[in-house]
């Protein structure tokens, strides 16, 4: 935490932390406080007067079936994205790990989609799946699937999941591969002397040994699906059709900036904050466990 040896106390450390603390106070803590404060007020749209209403905003939210369905949908979306992205990257990493020569080249060829902005990823998939012109929509039609995510809510959700998972594969691949390569070679060799073939080795030796990474990635992927997919959804479906792809972050944005419901949006922000805090706690408890390994 702190060096055994350190400098004499003076005003200097305060000057050093000042920029970071100032930005944190003004743009993080103050707005977060505002969200907390506004979440217990209802503002009259006509007079601008606000009234203190305790937890009415929250109560309204949880009585709102629409909000509850957004809640469940977000969980479904996050789970689907995390599982899809992790499944494919685990397979790719498993094979890449077997390749002695050239695995760096494969890595290079796989990691770059990480650098693509979510909204651009959205644009790419919009184009590919455009119901009238999109090349993949055309391909699907050839095999008898009528693709129109602009009308079909399930297809829209599927599209958003695919796009979001696609963008997250490089990240997961990198961490899975690093974890697999850090397993001592002697362990793998011992297993093969014990008669385990490649596939058996993967499931009985490699996969259990990388389980800390798997768990870590699960948390990271869920966080990603919750908070970093706004651009993808905004570009792909704009939350539609009929709110079928509206997730929590998207709804905060919609209610706040389009619907101008300050108290409701603030209450949603507060709920999101508690979610992030919960996820961070999970993540850090896991980091502590990782140290013991």
């Amino acid at each position: 935490m702190l060096k055994r040896v350190h400098f004499q106390p003076s005003v200097l450390p305060y000057l050093l932390v000042a920029p970071q603390i100032l930005v944190t106070l003004v743009f993080f803590l103050w707005p977060a406080g505002q969200a907390l404060y506004q979440s217990v007020l209802i503002e009259d749209a006509w007079t601008g007067n606000s009234e203190f209403v305790w937890f009415e905003n929250f109560q309204l939210l949880f009585e709102d079936t629409e909000y509850l369905s957004v809640f469940y949908r977000t969980g479904y979306f996050a789970g689907a994205v995390a599982l899809t992205a992790m499944f494919f990257s685990l397979i790719l990493a498993g094979f890449a790990d077997r390749i002695v020569k050239g695995s760096t080249i494969y890595r290079t060829l796989l990691i770059w989609p990480y650098a693509i902005a979510p909204v651009l990823a959205g644009a790419l998939f919009v184009f590919m799946f455009d119901p009238t012109l999109g090349i993949l929509a055309y391909g699907l039609k050839l095999i008898g699937i009528d693709w129109n995510h602009k009308l079909d809510g399930d297809q829209a959700m599927l599209l958003v999941v695919i796009a979001a998972a696609w963008k997250q594969i490089p990240y997961n691949f990198l961490f899975f591969l690093a974890a697999m390569q850090s397993i001592p070679k002697s362990v793998i060799e011992a297993a093969s002397i014990d008669g385990a073939g490649p596939i058996k080795r993967f499931w009985t030796i490699i996969f259990p040994l990388i389980s800390p990474t798997t768990f870590f990635l699960l948390v990271i992927n869920v966080v990603y699906a919750f908070f970093d997919t706004f651009g993808i959804i905004h570009a792909l479906t704009d939350g539609g059709p009929a709110n079928s792809t509206t997730v929590l972050v998207f709804k905060v944005f919609k209610d706040g900036f389009v619907g101008l419901d300050l108290g409701g949006s603030a209450a949603q922000s507060v709920i999101l904050m508690s979610l992030v805090i919960a996820l961070t706690v999970v993540q850090f408890r896991f980091v502590e466990r990782k140290v013991e390994y």
């Binding site: 707005p31 969200a35 922000s269 999101l272």
Partner: peptide, 29 residues
């Protein structure tokens, strides 16, 4: 890391908390 000064832990936690407040959750304020 290199100074021991009153408020050090407070500042540390203030910075830590920003981890839990991504832009997306406090858009409006």
């Amino acid at each position: 890391v290199y100074f021991r000064f009153p408020g050090r832990m407070l500042f540390f936690w203030m910075i830590f908390i920003t981890l839990m407040l991504p832009v997306e959750v406090r858009i409006l304020p």
